[in-house]
Design a protein around this nucleic acid. Structure first.
Lengths: 195, 195
DNA sequence: GATGACGGAATGAACATTCATTCCACTAGC
DNA sequence: GCTAGTGGAATGAATGTTCATTCCGTCATC
């Protein structure tokens, strides 16, 4: 029996800590969450957290990085760069909706910590890179004359803001949106930004 | 010299505390802000805060209530209940834009604390009442056939979400939106929700 | 296969620090 | 001199972090 297999006999504590911390950070925020609380919910000792993470800040940065990259994977993998703008928009929207429905907490977490002071440089850069990717897509769609003119930042704020608004209202009432309503929302926002 | 005048000789400490706390709560959140920090920024002693507010929670609730009511005044006073929906929408949007431009921090503060666990019952009720007011306006516009059908909550999430998105992007880059861009945003969102 | 010594993961009580709140000496205005 | 109002040091509770100890799976030895 290899050491690896032996280790797997114990349920993964690192994962348990990450999950518990994600939940609590969403519920109470970073400063509102005590490390021993995280340990309790994860079912480990308080000290164990420091075997896996250097500090509370390192923990929150770990979660942020992992979720952001997962989101990036889902949203941007095989992006249909040559497809019509209408289809690009629908694809992006529905992928985001799928991710956010499957992981509402992860999505809200990213929103909450977007511009937190305790995000490390690597995460700030990651955020920046993703923003630029989206901006490029918007700008080139504008150049093609498919989207309204105006500051790209404004268009993105409107679409992303609306998306976040919808997700948050779902989280508040603890009920995922119907597929039909997702489609309606997509249609509404496409009509909003199309040229 | 009357006692009132004498007091006014000292710049209003209550107001200074409220202003400093609003700023810091926006910058660092409720739990991330230490009471002595608030005192420092307000230019008063830490103990003085407790002459004016029972606790840190009472302070944050005071700010929330004051800003929410100010916002309600601005947004809903003399609401043109009989005007065409198009005009109602424009009026509401521009009033919110005016408030949020003049008080970006107050607006972000309200967004941040919307569903905080430390909001007292009175503030939760206040929030509820305002939500119902907006919902009524939306539903009756839908009944008139001026807005898209669909869950009113969904439409409101989209519009308010987009609005918040725009404001937050302004706050991030510390630069208010041009009047022209506000008009563009208004037009975009009207086209989004109109029937 | 049984035994016991070993390594390192896990623990949670203890520590230093930070925080909200209290308290009291001091001041300014009468 | 008296009072109301103030600042900021003092206080005790709570927090993030550490560390001496426990616990457990592994493996060499018989």
């Amino acid at each position: 029996m290899s050491p690896n297999e032996a280790k797997r006999a114990v349920p993964d504590k690192r994962e348990a800590i990450l999950d518990a911390a994600l939940e609590l950070f969403v519920e109470r925020g970073f400063y509102g969450t005590a490390v021993p609380e995280i340990a309790d919910r994860a079912g480990v000792g308080a000290g164990t957290i420091y075997r896996y993470f250097d500090s509370k800040e390192a923990l929150v940065n770990s979660i942020y990085r992992a979720q952001k990259m997962r989101f990036g994977q889902v949203a941007l993998a095989d992006f249909p760069a040559t497809a019509p703008t209408r289809e690009q928009f629908r694809t992006m929207w529905m992928r985001m909706a799928k991710f956010a429905t499957a992981n509402p907490q992860a999505f809200v977490f990213m929103e909450l910590h977007h511009h937190a002071r305790y995000l490390d440089a690597e995460n700030v850069a990651l955020e920046q890179r993703m923003l630029e990717l989206f901006t490029n897509v918007v700008v080139s769609a504008q150049t093609r004359g498919d989207l309204k003119q105006g500051p790209p930042r404004l268009l993105m704020s409107i679409v992303m803001g609306a998306f976040v608004g919808v997700i948050r209202s779902c989280v508040e009432i603890a009920q995922p949106l119907e597929k039909a309503d997702w489609k309606l929302a997509e249609q509404i926002l496409w009509e909003a930004v199309r040229a």
